[in-house]
Design a protein around this nucleic acid. Structure first.
Length: 221
DNA sequence: AAGGTCCCCAACCGCTTGTCA
DNA sequence: CTGACAAGCGGTTGGGGACCT
């Protein structure tokens, strides 16, 4: 069965995979003679056994004159960060502000350089959550010990001075009702740990230029 | 040295949008 | 208005090289 693809040509027969130098030459010559556009006729007339889609992609991302090759500059990286904050994954829109760079290139760059940072941030969040749980469990455990001791001496009320932990005993046999009213602020504790421990990872991964740019962005926002 | 893992990037795929008869 | 086709876009995949164990 012959399946039709988006560009109105049969799937059978089109070459796929990496382009050869000969194919590049054919495509470049054809486009320089006839101009960009009408990609399906490029596919038919140029002698290339490639779909129009494939021809367009190859031209736009690789053969088009004026394309920059190689690593993005810190300035370009900064522009990407800033524009992505505005437009999200509108790669072609972002690409318009980076002459010589393609949407595909920017998209790939974002995925490899910033997604991993996002991933590491997620790991940090997970770690933080686990620590919170551990902290909570430890406090509950401590609390049970305190309660069991307290239950021995008193079954009424126990309160400590202001600004410190406070708890209310209603029924020593019911765990739920014995939950403390006030706990130490776990988040504030995590904040103190976070500077050189938990949240340090993101900035270790980010290069200086990125950090500088993000700081600059934060300062302007 | 060899096998495994990670990273980068070219290319493909499917969906959406624009244009025209 | 509608359907067909062309073109564009963003997400995803897969190959190959670099790096690690």
């Amino acid at each position: 069965m012959t399946r039709m693809l988006g560009w109105g040509m049969p799937e059978q027969g089109w070459r796929k995979g990496p382009w050869t130098p000969e194919e590049d030459k054919l495509l470049s010559e054809y486009v320089s003679l006839h101009g960009e556009g009408r990609w399906s006729s490029v596919a038919r007339s140029s002698g290339l056994n490639r779909s129009g889609k494939s021809c367009r992609l190859r031209w736009v991302n690789y053969l088009r004159p004026g394309l920059k090759r190689g690593q993005l500059t810190p300035q370009e990286e900064g522009i990407i960060i800033e524009l992505h904050a505005i437009w999200g994954n509108k790669w072609s829109t972002i690409a318009k502000y980076l002459p010589g760079r393609t949407d595909n290139e920017i998209k790939n760059y974002w995925r490899t350089h910033f997604k991993k940072k996002e991933k590491s941030t997620q790991k940090q969040e997970k770690r933080k959550h686990q620590l919170q749980l551990q902290q909570q469990q430890q406090q509950e455990y401590d609390m049970k010990n305190v309660l069991s001791q307290a239950a021995e001496t008193s079954s009424e009320k126990m309160s400590e001075s202001e600004g410190r932990q406070q708890m209310v005993l209603t029924n020593p046999n019911s765990e739920e009702q014995c939950m403390p009213v006030m706990y130490q602020d776990v988040a504030s504790w995590l904040d103190t740990v976070g500077d050189d421990g938990i949240s340090g990872g993101l900035w270790n991964l980010a290069d200086d230029y990125t950090v500088a740019w993000i700081r600059q962005l934060c300062a302007t926002n």
